[in-house]
Amino acid sequence: MSPHKPERLRMTGIPAGQKVRLALLGEAIDPFQREQLHAYGLTVSSHLQVLQQQPLTVVMCDQIELALEHAVAHELWVEAL
């Protein structure tokens, strides 16, 4: 039996309170914003907690709260922890 592979979901589809692992930064994120996300610590494999989804997506990353507009959060693919 193959090991269970976690389902990848868009960050915008994750309910508040859920902890996730960042699996992929989508192609639609431009290089400038990709660098910005890396600088904030949003790199592949980083662990995040979704704090809220409206009006913006707010996540906790390394004890820092980050607000992400949905256009960006929609391009972040995550796996539930």
């Binding site: 400038f32 914003q33 910005q36 904030y40 709260e65 980050l66 607000a67 256009a71």
Partner: peptide
């Protein structure tokens, strides 16, 4: 327009 990504300080 650049979408918002910002830190929320404590």
């Amino acid at each position: 327009r650049i979408p918002l990504v910002t830190e929320l300080p404590p």
